[in-house]
Design a protein around this nucleic acid. Sequence first.
RNA 1: GGAGGAGUGGCAGAGCUGGUUGAAUGCACCGGUCUUGAAAACCGGCGUGCGAGAAAUCGUACCGGGGGUUCGAAUCCCUCCUCCUCCGCCA
Length: 427
Amino acid sequence: MLELNFIREQKTRIIEGLKVRNFPEADIEIINKIINFDDRRKELQTNLDNSLAERNKMSKQIGQLFKDGKRDEAEALREKVNALKEEYSTVEEELKGVIDQLNTMLLEVPNVPHPSVPAGSTEEDNEVYKAWADPLPELYEGAIPHWELAEEYGLFDLKLGTKITGSGFPLYRGYGARLERALINFFLDEGQKAGYEEIMPPILVNEDTARATGQLPDKEGQMYYVGKDNLYLIPTAEVPITNIYRDEILEASDLPVKLMGYTPCFRREAGSYGAHVRGLNRVHQFNKVEIVRIEHPDHSYEALEEMLQHVAGLLNKLELPFRILRLCGGDLGFTSALTFDFEVYSAAQKRWLEVSSVSNFETYQSNRMKLRFKNEQRKNQLVHTLNGSALALARIVAALLENNQQPDGIAIPKVLQTYTGFDKITK
RNA sequence: GGAGGAGUGGCAGAGCUGGUUGAAUGCACCGGUCUUGAAAACCGGCGUGCGAGAAAUCGUACCGGGGGUUCGAAUCCCUCCUCCUCCGCCA
């Protein structure tokens, strides 16, 4: 969430930002409301602190008076404190209420978009930032989409997944399972080379963790929830990995922190069926390697660029045609300041598939999770957090299968062959 | 799952028969003296949030979380969580 001081000082900038996001005009009033509540909060806090100071002073006197045997004076003072207490307890209660409401409102305000974020409301308005897909690949006559390839070569089975769990839970087998495992290892090895420390985190998280990275309350319905234990299945490794540093104060010399992790990811993706969600295009469980960075605020945008390079490098090595989009205000995630999406071209479906999302959250997450560092003045300052998929597997597999299909089999990109142990998928 | 013990500052560890204890002491860390340099020794500093203030600073809250008793709680009571030991079960 945004910092109160930031809201107070940069009110117009925030309102401009909300407009870029197409935040409903009527709801922008929340900013003024927040400031008013904050004024009241400060007033009450001062008030309460003064009363408490007085109480503490008198209580000390009472102790001394009892020691000195001046019982009557002590009793008299005690009466006075009791009277004071009634007075400040109402202040205390109001303050609690004001803080509660303030926090609720703060959770409703999304991050302020970076100045480079274009206005716009839908995917159509996203800006193509870079493209490595010219010309777009054309397949031979008779090429088929990945879900048909899967059936033909026995790579994954959605029907079995449905039998075992439900729709959207693919079961990979044979070549398909081995390809999946090869990709995970490839992505982790590349991350390792780029200086990311590998993490294998829990894939269920508690409420505090889900709130800190912004999944709660915003995306509550997006996560699978284990009610009996009050835990959530992670929608991305970003959640447990970033939370490693919740409530921490780092030294400037600890920065940057570069972490990555492979985990399965779970998303409920309620609604929507049809051609666009066939096969692996959209599933409830998929594998992903995520990279996470914790950066000095001065360097976070350099880091973002570096992450883009890293992801682009992976796709180039896999020889997949792709493009990078700069998301417009309307498509930008709630907690993000700037997001680039990577899309690979799926030649058989003749459409782009999103395979990675790389974002800078600036201080939005770090403020929620109280993640700070000691700056040059030895003051505690919020860090910037960033993360990106490097990469999400299901759709990469879809594109690989489709784009590399040949009449007699499916070719495996050169870099992957040492990982798969085979260079071609055949019947 | 059953029985018992414990959760205090970056770490270790006092306090826990309620009252200058935000918290002794040691280590770590930072600054200084000494030294050619380092170590040792000595001196000083060293938590976080909130509020007030231009600032120095002051006030306030925090001793696992929440609630209660009290003029006053790290210290007493309730509740939840976590960890440790023993038994049981188990990949």
